[in-house]
Design a binder for these strands. Structure first.
Length: 993
RNA sequence: GCCCCGGUGGCGAAAUGGCAGACGCACCGGACUUAAAAUCCGCCGCCCUUACGGGCAUGUGGGUUCGAUUCCCACCCGGGGCACCA
């Protein structure tokens, strides 16, 4: 016997059909039934959902009126060239079961599937096969469409589309244009009561023009007197989609820049695992940080796994603190150095300051070292300018991984500058060190070695003083001596000490924090900073703005051109989409993965005829050149979920009335205040990528009034991963899993391949692991219904579990038994009885309907299926199967195994599709039992059982229990100390000592 | 290092304070068959016992409770997330 059950054996058995009854449900019959019903569903439009109006109003005789809308979709797939394995469809089957169940409950179910077709995998596959990405992508979509069709998924196929479709790209670019034309007004009062909103940039221009808002850097000047490039620059600083020249993640191995979310903790690309370097490059970004707070706050309105909410909260990383201004005297005059701290209460303990190697202050370093500075601080450089330049260069060439690899070992150099503490007036030496990051906070910190581990490490290495300004609480059993000399005191649970001055440097008043608890001290000092005008309470985010451009061919072009001054202009909406040009070579220009000095080259720049374009943007025809970047493939997935409402709508992104009907707040009883998709199923790997970006875009569209719901996805469900065994030989090479045999060795399982012992490991399914099993294998050997049934019955949907082909047969047998209960295997005739149900069957049927309904509501198809099997097993024992029981059974099974259920339903004489039948209902009066088993326990152990009426009184049950001979014997004639009765189930006796 | 999730028969699992192991796989036994397959019936956590019955058992140790797989504390193991974020 092989470990992964040999398919060959099975086929052999089935191939020998001479002895088999002619009307047995087997793989061949399953295929026949399945393909027949799939064609019929397609022809009849069985799964068409009904819009409120327009071209998709026709839901095959069932319009939207009076039916509750229910919107259920999967995270749509990349049509990669690799094809599917049995793990991929798990979520699709689950949403299909849910869709079919809700349809049977009478709801108007929108269930559709699209294809996320731009992006690296599609492009890489095209490069490998030497074909145009559009050719390979369209082939892959066709292939995937067929594989999904064969599963019998109940999609409304009129609503399918791919992100590469011209009609879709047009609206993706249109959304970009809206975001580009917006800014975030943090003070705007929204209609929903919240503060802060995206607003058209025209409103900002208007405010500048009318003097309602000071123009940054040009106070008191007139907007119209500024030159075009200055106006463009100022607006760029406000736009939600903007161009910036700042350190970005440059990945030479892939030849493109990447978003933070696409870079691993090791500082490598998530795709391809190449090194990533920080390079100063001119790129597009999206101002997602403006939404940091709302993205955290609105998580509370969502029905999502806590784990994913937590991952988003951590990723956004909202922290509350204060910004504090330090004055830094330089030869160019006094400079302002703003630092961010979550612990302004420790200002008295600051003994130095650190700025990141990219910080502006470094352009003001002096040309010689102060007297008596140690070699350690100067790094041996002649003067501070040299030191700073060298350090900055070194930091640039390091990957994030290199920084972390130094194991927390801090490096840094003195800048020759001193910063003045606004409270104490103390002069703090300013260092530059790469443990301070330019893009968090202000890129500068006050260092408090007495209260921060990193600052302590740095102080320790460079011989800087340590002042403790917080000590443990009196009742903590600790004191400061336990820390002094080897560790900082970092806890918030402490009392402030050593923090008093008679005259503060900035305000002159006395200030003392001594004796306050940390949280009180933070409050007091923050108020002082604000009054003195040297700081204020601030919120910081770990989240960075979203780097939005890529140097790739296979993505959406930006709808942007540049004029002869290099100023950006949007392509007018009526000229969208901007289509991809033909280029001589669409493969990315990649570099030596270690070559940090290389620079990106966009494939779109290779077609000069496309890049140079003559347009009339309102001031006559002029020559412009196009932006040659493309959008990341997250762009297409940011809004596809709303396009299923009408993918052919060429007048709207989404028609507002239809949006309200399908996705608006309160569109159905479970929608919740934030609205959105009723059930969204996909892998947890998108917790902070796709799901965060999509929420961000959705909120911008909400602010601008294009959609009525605050959130895109109300309920999120993460399906588990299907795992598999893989086998390696002595050299560590993978061997084909389906050729491995299981043998018993000293009573334990061992594995061999062609007689050689092999080692078993457990993990993913993958081609390189030689353990792939495809849906096609399953269709061939068992049929789609059995495959669906097995995937739904193998365990809870949200848990990962191993695939085991051997177990699939159980589902097949269940379907065969059901088939046999309805159809005579030798004659092919229906063999059900129309007699009324006997008492036992009636009760079991009602109990089953009740239980299965509860399990379906809770998305637990595994337990629902087990209860259906119990009912079917009971029907098998009946001489002739009663129609009144088997029909509801078929209806309840139909969401999981729709083809066989359609077939049986029609053979039982019904005309319409089982998909539109009503879900069975039970009668409460049949749920009760005549007699139930009551358990008698002594000290929690079962010592006797009683058959009693379910409505027996507690007293009667107690008396009967105590009268049992076995109980009498154990009690030894003594009165029990205590008797707990929970009629009619339990009597629990505590005996006397 | 910090945070989250999980650990139940030979295997996938069920039970979320009340008879641990529903349902399925595998194994074993029986019926049918010349025989096998298929099908149907039965057995199926471990230990002691011919049996009746008893003891042990949900990663380990403790606690709460009449009663704990379920709640609490500590630890072990496995999986995932984050990781110089001031």
């Amino acid at each position: 016997m092989t470990a992964n059950e040999s398919m060959k054996d099975d086929q052999g058995e089935r191939g020998d059909r001479a002895e088999q009854p002619p009307f047995r449900y087997d793989a061949a019959m399953a295929q026949n039934i399945e393909e027949r019903w799939q064609d019929r569903w397609e022809k009849d439009g069985t799964f068409w959902a009904a819009n409120v109006k327009g071209g998709l109003k026709d839901g095959k005789g069932r319009n939207a009126d009076g039916r509750t809308p229910y919107y259920v979709i999967d995270m749509f797939p990349y049509p990669s060239g690799k094809g599917l394995h049995v793990g991929h469809p798990l979520g699709y089957i689950a949403t299909d079961v849910v869709s079919r169940y809700h349809r049977m409950k009478g709801e108007n179910v929108l269930h559709a599937m699209g294809y996320d077709a731009f992006g690296l995998p599609a492009e890489q596959y095209a490069v490998q096969t030497g074909q145009h990405p559009r050719t390979t992508t369209e082939q892959n979509i066709e292939n995937m469409r067929w594989q999904l069709h064969r599963l019998g998924l109940s999609f409304d196929d009129r609503r399918s589309f791919a992100t590469i479709d011209e009609g879709y790209v047009r609206w993706t670019q249109w959304i970009f244009s809206r975001i580009y034309e917006s800014w975030y007004d943090p003070d705007y009062k929204r209609a929903d009561g919240g503060i802060g909103s995206a607003r058209p940039i025209s409103e900002l221009v208007d405010a500048f023009r009318r003097g309602l808002k000071p123009i940054p850097g040009h106070q008191g000047e007139s907007w119209d007197d500024l030159d075009a490039s200055e106006r463009s620059r100022i607006l760029n600083d406000h736009r939600l989609a903007y161009i910036s020249e700042s350190p970005v993640n440059w990945c030479p191995g892939l030849g493109t820049v990447l978003a933070n979310e696409e870079v691993t903790a090791e500082g490598r690309s998530e795709r391809g695992n190449y090194p990533v370097f920080q390079r100063e490059l001119k790129q597009w970004s999206m101002r997602i940080t403006a939404y940091g707070h709302r993205l955290i706050e609105d998580l509370d309105t969502l029905d999502w796994p806590e784990k994913v909410k937590l991952m988003q909260r951590n990723w956004i990383g909202e922290s509350h603190g204060a910004s504090v201004h330090f004055t830094v005297p330089t030869s160019d005059g006094d400079q302002d150095m703003e630092v961010y701290t979550t612990r302004p209460d420790t200002l008295f303990g600051a003994t130095f300051a650190v700025v990141s190697p990219e910080h502006d202050l470094l352009s003001h370093v002096p040309d010689r070292w102060p007297q008596g500075v140690s070699q350690e601080w100067t790094g041996g450089y002649e003067d501070p300018r040299q030191a700073v330049r060298a350090y900055r260069l070194a930091a640039e060439s390091k990957t994030a991984k290199d920084r972390v690899d130094e194991g927390g070992e801090k490096t840094g150099l003195f800048t020759g500058l001193y910063a003045i503490n606004p409270i104490t007036g103390a002069e703090l030496p300013v260092f530059t060190a790469d443990y301070v990051l330019m893009d968090y906070g202000t890129g500068a910190i006050m260092a408090v070695p007495g209260g921060d581990q990193r600052d302590y490490d740095f102080a320790d290495k460079y011989g800087l003083p340590v002042i403790y300004t917080v000590q443990p609480l009196p009742d903590s059993g600790e004191d400061l001596e336990g820390y002094r000399g080897h560790a900082p005191f970092v806890s918030h649970d402490g009392v402030v000490i050593n923090s008093s001055v008679e005259r503060t440097h900035a305000l002159g008043d006395a200030l003392s924090l001594d004796g306050l608890r940390v949280d009180q001290a933070i409050e007091k000092v923050t108020a002082w900073l604000e009054k003195a005008g040297v700081g204020k309470g601030t919120v910081s985010y770990r989240l960075r703005d979203w780097l939005f451009s890529r140097q790739r061919y296979w993505g959406e072009p930006f709808p942007v051109v540049y004029d002869d001054q290099g100023l950006p202009h949007l392509i007018p909406d009526d000229q969208l989409p901007v289509s991809l040009p033909d280029v001589p070579d669409y493969s990315p220009k990649t570099f030596d993965p270690q070559d940090a000095e290389s620079s990106p080259e966009a494939p779109l720049s290779r077609n000069q005829d496309w890049v140079d374009v003559t347009l009339d943007l309102g001031d006559g025809p002029k020559t412009y050149h196009r932006d040659t970047n493309t959008m990341p493939n997250w762009a297409g997935s940011c809004w596809y979920y709303m396009r299923y409402i009408d993918p052919d709508d060429d007048r709207h992104l989404v028609e507002p009335e239809e949006f309200d009907y399908w996705l608006g707040p309160d569109h159905n009883p479970t929608a919740g205040e934030s609205g959105g998709v009723d059930l969204y199923v996909g892998g947890v790997e998108h917790a902070v990528l796709h799901l965060l970006y999509a929420r961000f875009w959705h909120k911008v569209l909400y602010d601008l009034g294009y959609v009525s719901s605050k959130e895109p996805f109300h309920k999120l469900f993460n399906q588990g991963m299907i795992q598999a065994y893989a086998y390696t030989d002595e050299r560590g090479q993978y061997v084909p899993a389906d050729e491995v045999e299981e043998v018993q060795e000293e009573g334990r399982a061992a594995y061999t391949w062609h007689g050689e012992p092999v080692n078993r490991e457990f993990g993913k399914m993958g081609k390189s692991l030689k353990n792939i099993i495809t849906p096609d294998d399953m269709y061939r050997t068992y049929g789609a219904d059995t495959f669906r049934l097995y995937e739904m019955s193998m365990g809870p949907l949200d848990e990962s579990r191993p695939w085991n082909t051997r177990n699939v047969i159980g589902g097949m047998r269940f379907l065969q038994r059901l088939w046999r209960n309805v159809i005579d295997e030798t004659t092919g005739q229906v063999r059900v009885s129309d007699d009324p149900l006997d008492e036992k069957t009636l009760k079991l049927l009602n109990r089953t309907i009740h239980d299965v309904t509860v399990e379906m509501e809770g998305m637990r198809p595994n337990t629902a299926i087990s209860k259906l099997i119990v009912l079917n097993n009971h029907l098998t024992s009946c001489e002739r199967t009663p129609r009144a029981a088997v029909e509801p059974l078929i209806l309840m099974l139909s969401p999981v195994a729709p083809h066989i259920c359609e077939e049986l339903w029609s053979r039982l004489g019904h005309r319409g599709s089982v998909a539109w039948e009503s879900w069975p209902t039970y009668e409460a009066r049949y749920l009760g039992e005549d007699m139930v088993t009551a358990v008698v326990q002594i000290k929690g152990k079962v010592r006797g059982k009683l058959q009693v009426s379910p409505d027996i009184s507690a007293g009667d049950l107690r008396d009967q229990a105590l009268a049992l001979p076995a109980i009498q014997e154990r009690l030894g004639g003594k009165e029990p100390r205590k008797v707990i009765v929970k009629a009619p189930k339990i009597v629990s006796i505590v005996p006397a000592e």
